[in-house]
Design a protein around this nucleic acid. Structure first.
Lengths: 192, 192, 192, 192
DNA sequence: GATGAATGAGCCTTCATTCAT
DNA sequence: AATGAATGAAGGCTCATTCAT
């Protein structure tokens, strides 16, 4: 918007379109196949050359990072609505289970969020921070009204999210979490 | 009834030693780095040539499978002691948390056990079956004495195991599960 | 009717050049050393990286196939001239002996054409079919004018080609077939 | 037995048996698969360790050579009978076609005999010499009685043998040489 | 002497990244 | 800027040969 900006050269229209397209495709492909998928596959499906991918993202990791960051910020953004339209308990749980679903359907995201001290924290540290802050807010509100038991820190909830993603991925598309969901939900609420 | 044995040519002493050494090293290396490590790395650390690894295990997957199978059977074996020395509830939970610890410290095992409908089931189907049966027995006993709530099937517990492995891996070496452990434990016990 | 063409993306100039260069080098190297030569050797002699070879030909077999197909189609193409400029007998024999020379100087081609029910038929089945059809036409014409004896089918001539290739390869660069050529030629003409 | 002997240490009975067994198995396996077959395969089928093969034959090539030598000498030996029991023409042709059949059913032998200036000449030069001498005698006798045309040297017949082996191998198990055999036979006899 | 386990160079193939067009 | 071709370092696996048992 003004002077003190580093790398904000406004991209040409087609370049911006390409960048968005690559990001979107990368999301789909990483979601389906995980980080291991070749970059050529992404380029091909995005209808661009591999060089174009590298023009916008210097390495494969950087692209992955951008995707993860994007996802995290999407989730963060959704939190505003939740806070506005639901009571604190509902808001927290809605956010939590939405996150679980997101990760269950997105292998790349699950990989990124599960790798301890690595992926999200390292790949997209700012986004992870925002995500945690948001999560922390929702948690605090829910705890304030007694909808979530005390003694739980954001880190705990963050870890639980990772765990539930893993469970749901393990269950596969067919079944949801079933009883496990109740168990977790009850555990978060605290015994009555 | 004993473990899977086919064509029982007793290996030469040095070969058995090497095989064991490779298996052990593979366990360490897969544990530390996951399935992705090069076979050469395992060979190097085991102090053998790559060919030696392939003499004992025809493919990288076969080696991985052997490691996983070994781990699963170790766990299964430990269950006998638990049944003998503890009451059903303790036995079940000891087994469960030991499994979590095992997977938390072993990336390869965690990968194998988490990949839905794939890894353990496909890689070492017999071992997975034995593991599930053992788990099922412990669960049934614990449920019979009311130490674990009803409405839980082996599959649920198996999935929960995957989830807890992921959580504990996420937590890293430093912290244990903390409150999360209580939550899960309470959830399994059933609300009081 | 024209040669096999699929998905006709015209290659970039440099790519086409490289592809041609690889094909040409592969021809030379397969000719000199047979199918057994490492792909790296071909890449090195062509002055490209191994990856470049694989960009144009997905497997070593595919490269070999392309070379064989190229050779067969060259021969087929030459037949048109022969038919136009020579009488049926000459055309047939010119084609036959040219084929023998081709195979005698090309270990790869000889391997491909000699492996019964395998190589040419399997590697480049369309090209082999075109080759046989061409051979069949020339044979029929020559038989029609009495330049080649009756009772010979294309399969016989095809097999004889394989045999003469082997003989001439055995003779080495120095000597031609000598008397053997007469014997075969007389045998094909039929006793007078 | 005495002093001035180099490598004639009379082998122990079991060693001699093993050597023979390896040689025989190698013949079968090379015949079926050609020189490319792994030595371990031969050892396995012979029921010995790979080390035993190497004790008797210093390299894979040496083993191959021994097999080829054995085959050539077998053929040479058979010639004596032919000379004794048949007229010169029959003897020559019987020898020739028997050689063709031998090579057609033996991939290893065909490879050895076809490689110009290489295999037989180099691998088993003495045996090749004996083979050629035998062939030369039979040829000379047959030519002397007019059963084979003049103007043919041993080299020609040797090359023709290679060619006919190739043809018959190409034809596969199913069909014999058919007309081609007549052509060659007529060609050798000379036109009447 | 026999055994078969160990070695290690070498082969085919993949893929992140760079670069000419 | 975009393209997609080129690069080359690995990685999985095989096999002739050597060596400890």
């Amino acid at each position: 918007m003004s002077a003190s900006q580093e790398s904000v050269k406004p991209l040409r229209a087609d370049a911006r379109r390409n960048r968005a397209r690559v990001l979107e495709t990368a999301h789909e492909v990483f979601a389906a196949e995980g980080f291991g998928v070749p970059i050529d596959e992404i380029a091909r499906r995005a209808g661009v050359g591999a060089g174009t991918v590298y023009r916008h993202f210097p390495t494969k990791e950087a692209l992955f990072e951008a995707v993860v960051l994007d996802r995290l910020d999407h989730m963060v953004a959704s939190a505003a609505d939740l806070v506005a339209t639901r009571d604190p308990g509902d808001a927290f749980f809605a956010f939590f289970w939405a996150g679980v679903d997101e990760g269950a359907g997105d292998k790349g995201l699950a990989e990124a969020m599960a790798e301890a001290g690595y992926a999200a924290e390292v790949l997209a540290p700012e986004a992870e921070k925002r995500f945690r802050n948001t999560f922390g807010d929702l948690l605090a509100r829910a705890q304030a009204v007694g909808a979530v038991r005390g003694g739980l820190a954001v880190d705990d909830v963050r870890a639980l999210l990772v765990g539930c993603m893993a469970m749901q991925r393990y269950r596969g598309e067919a079944g949801g979490l079933g009883v496990l969901r109740e168990i977790v939900q009850d555990g978060l609420r605290g015994r009555s």
